[in-house]
Design a protein around this nucleic acid. Structure first.
Lengths: 318, 318
DNA sequence: GTAATCATGACAATAGCTGTCACTATTATA
DNA sequence: TATAATAGTGACAGCTATTGTCATGATTAC
């Protein structure tokens, strides 16, 4: 093995280990301790930020432990990262804003001119439609960090009753329609709650362990079932026109499954929580004559009542 | 300068130059040609993909010109790239799928175990709510490439009239509610059209220059105004309850500006295209008693007609 | 006080590197 | 076809760098 090759592998080893002794590396690389000492000094001269500590439990450490070793990416891989960043560009606030920018900057700096041109052009050629929101959500980093590390958070929340202090255990954060939400176990209410992140004014991670709610296996994919486990379901049956199917198909919500016919019309046969009746009444009214709700009776009644009130407001029926 | 340092700088130089002669580099590094030849051979042994060509205009080239030199990212920057990838995870199809995966894999491979743990955990702690779509859009890469390089595309489109062949100049692609759309200048129709990408069955970039529509300055940000420049506007005035404001505020569309009052109610005073009356009628009906449309008269009339039809269907008014 | 760690300097032996030189092969171009 | 511009190979003398061993010293936790 040539010395150059040994030094390259040594650079990967020190980034992998982060903390090590001269003897340990000498054995691993099959050279004497004196040679390994020299190699590490030369690595230092090449720019790897090593420092040493003498004494028991001494050894070498990487000064800036938070760096990865140099990685070679293809231009297409770099372009792919730029593409992914466009999915985030209409959000007013996101976690990792600074880090994404600096990562993209590093890629850009190492690109030849023709690839830069393509990256610049892509900016105007790909987009993700996300509503623009003016509400600021400055606490996203804190909340995400707390969720990942399963730490409690003390926050000030601007809810219906005004600003109040809450202590929560965040499940995670998610974006919907350009707004960020944080489902969390609220220690004040002893139950799960969904918080809007733009209404979280301050948040700080609490270092002291607090009482531990039973949430080790709760995450963004299943917190809803924990929260909604007591909901009562009811069956719905809705007939849809061709246009109704198209509208459903391009609509946004997680939603009941459509069944379709050859002629393009379709129907919904499903079960929904009774607590959502009001919401579905609004939704199907918004579809107008493109949907015909047949079941359940509560939903039909709710629609009927809304129609009556609106007819009176708009003077329909004359 | 030690040999190791020289090799490291040589590696950066070959990535920068991409194409060079032995003599050129020997002069630049202050060594003989014979030594430079040996150095290049050793670089090859270290994994840099060089190849040579003899004869006039010969020299060395980087075999895989599509690689960037090794870049050192911080762990936070790497985590940020993983975060960005989550914005894409519910899309059935995206451009750059393979490249994103391989880029993320490279980051992951170079990470220490504790950072991997955080990345794994983040998966369940952050999400972007995007409706799941079963419709496949296999031509995204082609369309995006064509838009970036401003090349024409021949495609088969499954529209209302069945599958037909179209020749287009793509403006770009964008995602909305989990579906991908491609605004393009349609050479068959001599006008701009919006295509759903899941209905584009085949697409291939045409290499021959075709007739050039005047679209050099058209991109995703302004194609709508080119397309809609003849739209007639009309003023609207809508009163909103507190709940109506909340619904508006968390809704998804690019939408007219709300004005709000101290008590939480609000109103909309704006101008919309006349061609969108039908759409807005559906939208405000879906808000039920939370919105009261006062203007324009066409919109009120449209709402009234829809209410009358629905009242008859649901037996309201008894 | 002991043990575990880094650290320095010196030296002999030897491995590797460098530049020079002579020669060969390939290829585009006039 | 000849020429020039390029990479390529091998050999060799002279020189430099590297390596391991050895002796010694300093720091630090336990």
């Amino acid at each position: 093995m040539s010395k150059s090759k040994r030094l390259m592998e040594l650079m990967l080893a020190v980034h992998r280990k982060r903390s090590f002794t001269v003897k340990e590396l000498a054995v691993e690389f099959g050279v004497s301790s004196r040679t390994m000492l020299r190699d590490l000094q030369e690595l230092g001269e090449l720019g790897v930020p090593l420092y040493s500590e003498v004494g028991p439990h001494g050894g070498y450490r990487l000064l800036n432990e938070r760096m990865l070793p140099p990685i070679a990416f293809s231009e297409e891989e770099a372009a792919a990262v730029f593409f992914a960043s466009h999915a985030l560009r209409h959000y007013r606030d996101i976690p990792f804003r600074t880090e994404i920018s600096s990562a993209l900057q590093k890629f850009y700096l190492h690109m030849p001119q023709d690839v830069r041109g393509k990256i610049d052009e892509m900016r105007d050629r790909v987009d993700f439609q996300v509503p623009h929101r003016s509400q600021s959500a400055p606490m996203l980093n804190v909340l995400l960090q707390a969720a990942i590390q399963r730490q409690p958070v003390r926050m000030e929340y601007d809810g219906r009753a005004g600003v109040e202090e809450r202590e929560i255990r965040p499940v995670g954060i998610y974006a919907s329609n350009g707004l960020w939400y944080c489902p969390a176990y609220c220690l004040n209410r002893q139950d799960y709650r969904l918080f809007r992140c733009d209404r979280i004014k301050t948040a700080e991670i609490m270092e002291r362990p607090t009482e531990e709610p039973e949430m080790e296996q709760v995450h963004l994919g299943n917190w809803g079932s924990v929260h909604d486990r007591d909901s009562e379901l009811t069956g719905i049956h809705v007939e849809l026109s061709r246009e109704g199917c198209r509208r459903f198909e391009t609509g946004m919500w997680p939603q009941p499954q459509i069944r379709k016919r050859e002629d393009g019309t379709g129907w919904i046969e499903s079960r929904i929580p009774k607590s959502d009746i009001e919401y579905y009444a609004h939704f199907f009214i918004g579809l107008g004559m493109e949907a015909h709700v047949l079941q359940p009776a509560e939903l039909v009644l709710s629609i009927r009542q809304m129609l009556a009130a609106m007819a009176e407001r708009y003077g329909a029926g004359e």
